[in-house]
């Protein structure tokens, strides 16, 4: 590429819309090109300013408390310690490269460290979510039902955590309901009409992990015999409009 062609990448790079391949090539170029680094910086500020183009919206008062509560839970990463502890090979590589290539390598490596830190942060949040999911899935007052189709797949598992008054729904290989449709779960007790447990949909991979509050009527019964899954119009139906696609009997776990 000519230097002019490289410069054309600065704006889309700052917007984060280059393909992975283009991004890697451009970052390699950035290491040795101060002009492009300056462009990226300027366009990153433009991108930052675009946040002001979002329609005005008032966050709830409680959000500030949640942000601060999160800070109470997690202490800031202290760069020296955290990077050494988490990424010993990277720190070693950084030292070596810094010695060899000086500022050029530092620029590239800082980018890599930031990306890796981002990934760590994402993994941290996934782990935190898993922790709370695990807390919901275990305990003395938990019931579970496995729902299976006739041909083994798709499948779903629903956990009823009474202490927290939540259903935890885990679905696998269940193709996402088409637009305008949703999946709905039903609590089926002998001698009663099915009671809605709530609606959800699966992602592009056919998976779902959702929490549904337990309806008072179901909570009052304390136990139901079966659990069924149907596909309904968006928003759910008062009563199932089709034979359950998945069905299972509740059992107690431990």
């Amino acid at each position: 590429m000519t230097s002019h062609e490289w410069q054309e990448q600065a704006a889309p790079y700052a917007l984060g819309i280059l393909s992975a391949e283009e991004r890697r090539a451009f970052e390699a170029h950035l290491a040795g090109c101060a002009a492009c680094r300056a462009d990226v910086r300027a366009f990153a500020e433009v991108a930052g300013a675009l946040a002001h183009a979002a329609p005005s919206a008032e966050p709830p008062q409680s959000l500030r408390d949640r942000v601060l509560a999160e800070a109470q839970r997690v202490r800031p990463i202290h760069v020296g310690i955290a990077r050494r502890a988490r990424l010993p090979w990277l720190a070693a590589a950084a030292a070596l490269l810094l010695a060899v290539a000086g500022a050029v390598a530092a620029w590239r490596l800082t980018g890599r460290v930031h990306r890796l830190e981002d990934r760590i942060a994402v993994l941290d949040s996934i782990m935190a979510a898993d922790d709370s999911a695990l807390a919901l899935l275990t305990g003395p007052d938990v019931n579970v039902v496995s729902l299976a189709g006739t041909d083994r797949q798709p499948s779903a598992r629903v956990v009823w955590n009474r202490a927290r008054n939540r259903f935890v729904v885990l679905a696998f290989d269940l193709p996402a309901a088409p637009p305008g449709r949703t999946y709905q779960l039903w609590a089926i007790a002998k001698g009663r009409s099915p009671m809605s447990m709530g609606t959800f949909n699966t992602d592009a991979h056919g998976r779902a992990r959702v929490l549904l509050p337990v309806d008072q009527q179901i909570a009052a019964l304390g136990f139901v015999d079966n659990c069924g899954l149907t596909q309904e119009p968006s928003g759910g139906s008062p009563q199932p409009t089709e034979t359950p696609r998945l069905l299972g009997a509740w059992r107690r776990t431990d």
Binding site: R41, A44, A49, V67, A71, V74, I77, V79, A121, S125
Partner: peptide, 21 residues
């Protein structure tokens, strides 16, 4: 904000403003 809090030490003013970050 949680990520900004955890990663505050890695913020580098030479790379851009706090707002853009």
């Amino acid at each position: 904000f949680g990520q900004a809090w955890r990663r505050a030490a890695s913020f580098d003013a030479a790379r851009g403003s706090v707002g853009a970050w």
